[in-house]
């Protein structure tokens, strides 16, 4: 069933915003690649609100002393407490296989964001 979340203008590109839909906390992410994602808004580690976390990217380097690269800007959501990193495209906790946040399908219709529950 589809539920109205809000207007796309409420979540500018590269940002996120928390909502509560049917009493379920949701964080909507508008990635740098202009894609929208929705995640359950509580960290599976210690339950803090992921909506207060940091949306960014991830690092790449081949070893100590090598040049760092920064990729996937806007696709990694980091928990505001312990910094656990969640891939907004699938909810997986990066480098902690046992942790994952639920993802929800989103649709955009006439600039309105709808959540499938």
């Amino acid at each position: 069933m589809k539920y109205l979340v809000g207007n796309v203008a409420e979540v500018p590109r590269g940002e996120k915003r928390s909502y509560k839909i049917k009493n379920i906390p949701i964080v909507v992410i508008h990635s740098a690649q202009d894609q929208f994602y929705a995640l359950y808004e509580r960290c599976p580690h210690q339950g803090v609100s992921l909506g207060n976390g940091t949306l960014g990217g991830t690092t790449c380097a081949t070893g100590p002393g090598a040049a760092f690269d920064y990729t996937r800007e806007g696709e990694i959501l980091r928990c505001p407490w312990h910094g656990f990193s969640f891939d907004v495209t699938n909810g997986a906790c990066v480098n902690a296989e046992s942790l994952r946040v639920r993802t929800y399908p989103l649709t955009i219709d006439n600039s309105q964001i709808f959540l499938d529950l």
Binding site: T59, A61, T62, A66, F84, N95
Partner: peptide, 15 residues
């Protein structure tokens, strides 16, 4: 620590 701080050491690929 790795779960929280791996961005500092991206060459470490697993736990």
């Amino acid at each position: 620590n790795y779960r929280s701080l791996y961005h500092e050491i991206p060459w470490v690929k697993q736990l």
